[in-house]
């Protein structure tokens, strides 16, 4: 589905991703973990074509994404739904308009009542019925996350990328959000990539883990194999030890 071969990326003359080789099969569920500023969000955005790698190859369904000019990336991006770290809800749109926004853009001919119905259905799925007419600024952190998830999933894109879906949320809301994501994944058999700092919760959700440190892959494999990884950075991070290279 998505193949990265030797991806490298620099931002403001600083290497952010170095030689990332990663293959994501359709229907798999990946978690990206790593210390702060290790390139996790940049990698996710690169997969969407928001950053263009300096070196390497990135293909989505066989299409070379970085080789496409910006206007031609539309077809590839339509295969992806993304929840951003800061939710990226548009403050100038109400909750319902935020959720239906991608659908309206992809289907300009879709009647207004159908857009409203689809947005309401998706908001109901994330437990936010009754919040349709609120502004994003009126929502709590957990509610914003759920609106972001509703927006990311409304088009039933085959690839879903969640950047910190539970950051700053309490354990109960975190569990609810992961239950919701699991539910959505089962319904649509989508390929999922999730970035999180809440490692235990993430590990319960994913099948595979990619561990990034300073833009380099330190571990890439099944979730169950993470404990056995002998890389000192991975070893220290996963166990939460204070002594070590980190």
């Amino acid at each position: 589905m998505i193949h990265c071969d030797g991806l490298s990326l620099q931002l403001t003359h600083r290497p952010v991703l170095s030689d990332v080789t990663w293959h994501i099969e359709a229907g798999s569920v990946w978690g990206i973990i790593g210390p702060p500023a290790s390139g996790k969000s940049v990698l996710a955005k690169t997969l969407c074509g928001l950053f263009t790698p300096r070196q390497g190859r990135l293909t989505v369904d066989g299409v070379d994404l970085p080789g496409l000019p910006e206007p031609d990336r539309v077809k590839v991006r339509r295969k992806m739904g993304m929840l951003f770290q800061n939710n990226a809800l548009f403050d100038f749109l109400r909750v319902r308009e935020n959720v239906s926004f991608p659908l309206a853009r992809q289907n300009p001919e879709m009647p207004h009542h159908e857009l409203v119905a689809r947005a309401q259905e998706r908001l109901r799925a994330v437990g936010l019925s009754g919040s349709e007419e609120k502004w994003p600024s009126e929502l709590s952190g957990g509610m914003k996350k759920r609106v972001g998830i509703a927006r990311a999933t409304i088009c039933n894109a085959p690839v879903l990328i969640y950047d910190e879906p539970t950051a700053g949320l309490d354990p109960v809301t975190t569990s609810k959000i992961y239950d919701l994501l699991t539910d959505l994944r089962r319904k649509h058999a989508s390929t999922v990539i999730a970035i999180s700092s809440d490692i235990p919760a993430l590990r319960r959700f994913v099948d595979h883990i990619l561990f990034l440190h300073e833009g380099r892959i330190r571990y890439c494999g099944p979730e169950s194999g993470l404990e056995a990884c002998q890389d000192p950075v991975v070893y220290q991070f996963v166990r939460g030890q204070t002594e070590g290279p980190l």
């Binding site: 955005k45 928001l50 339509r78 951003f84 990226a88 548009f90 926004f101 853009r105």
Partner: peptide, 17 residues
């Protein structure tokens, strides 16, 4: 603020210039 809160990235991810 839209840049800082990733709303511009959000638009681009939705293929909106």
């Amino acid at each position: 603020t839209m840049v800082v809160t990733e709303q511009i990235d959000g638009l681009r991810a939705l293929s909106i210039d």
